[in-house]
C-alpha cells in the first residue's frame, strides 16, 4: 500500500528525516513510535507533500507520489488527521464533514449517515461551529472528517494526545472498528505505548530521524527496550 524509501527531509539546514525506510501493507495498522522531535510528524507531512522531501521517495499503491501536490495525494485516498486536530473552527460540524467527504472516489461525494454510527455525538451537533466543541469532540470530528472520505490509508498523528482516559479508549475503539470493518490501512504516530500496542499490527521506532527498531506489535511486550527509546 505505502512504501517509504530512504526519505530525507530538511527544514533549511536542519535535517529532520535521515533516510527513513518502511512500509504499510493493505489493511495493516502500523505504529511509528518515538520521542518528541524524533521526526514523526515531519514524516507524515512529507508523505502528504506538505513538507517536501529532499531525496528518497514515497510510493502509494505502486505510484510514485513524492512530487505530487498535496491535494492530488489526498485525492488518491490518503486521509491525514494531523496532531492538534486542525478542524475548521468557524465551519459547522456538517461543513467540516462535507469537506472530508471530498476525498471519496465515488462520484456523489455525499455524507453517508453510517459515519454517525461511529460518532453519535457529532450527529447531534451538526450545525454547531467546530470551534465550540469540547476537546474530545473536536478529536472525534477530526477523525470523522478523515473517515468520511473513505480513504485507503489513514495517517493519524497522536490521536490520543491530551484526551482523558475514557476518551482515549473510545477513540481507540473507533479506529479499531473502522479499520476492521472497512479494510482501511493506517499509519499511526504515537507516544502512548499502550494505545499503539492495542491497535497496531507492526511498529517502527524512530530516533533522530531514523528508524532504529521495528517488529510485530505483539513483541512490544519487551518493554525495557522500547521504554529506552520513548523515555523523555
Amino acid at each position: 500500500m505505502l512504501q517509504v524509501e530512504h526519505l530525507d527531509t530538511a527544514y533549511g539546514q536542519t535535517r529532520i528525516l535521515k533516510g527513513v525506510t518502511f512500509e504499510v501493507g493493505a489493511r495493516e495498522i502500523v505504529a511509528i513510535l518515538g520521542r518528541n522531535g524524533a521526526g514523526k510528524t515531519t514524516l507524515l507531512r512529507s508523505i502528504m507533500g506538505l513538507t517536501r522531501a529532499r531525496s528518497g521517495g514515497v510510493r502509494f499503491k505502486g505510484r510514485d507520489i513524492t512530487e505530487l501536490p498535496t491535494y492530488e495525494i489526498a485525492a488518491l485516498g490518503i486521509s491525514y488527521v494531523p496532531q492538534g486536530k486542525h478542524i475548521f473552527p468557524r465551519l459547522s460540524v456538517a461543513e467540516n464533514l462535507r469537506l472530508g467527504a471530498r476525498l471519496q472516489r465515488s462520484a456523489d461525494k455525499a455524507l453517508r449517515p453510517e459515519v454517525f454510527g461511529y460518532f453519535p455525538v457529532l450527529g447531534e451537533r451538526l450545525s454547531q461551529h467546530g470551534g465550540t466543541l469540547s476537546g474530545g469532540e473536536q478529536q472525534m470530528l477530526a477523525l470523522a472528517r478523515g473517515l468520511v472520505g473513505e480513504p485507503d490509508l489513514l495517517l493519524l498523528d497522536e490521536p490520543s494526545e491530551g484526551l482523558q482516559p475514557s476518551l482515549v479508549d473510545a477513540i481507540r475503539g473507533i479506529i479499531d472498528r473502522v479499520c476492521q470493518e472497512r479494510g482501511v490501512a493506517a499509519l499511526l504516530v504515537e507516544q502512548n505505548l499502550d494505545f499503539a500496542r492495542a491497535l497496531a499490527d507492526r511498529y517502527y521506532v524512530m530516533e533522530n530521524g531514523t528508524i532504529v527498531l521495528h517488529g510485530r506489535a505483539s513483541e512490544l511486550a519487551d518493554e525495557e527496550v522500547i521504554r529506552q527509546y520513548l523515555a523523555v
Binding site: L50, T70, E72, A74, F88, L91, L99, R102, L103, R145
Partner: peptide
Amino acid sequence: QDVEMASALA
C-alpha cells in the same frame, strides 16, 4: 481558516 488542512482534504 487552515490552508494546509484544506489541501490535505484534496
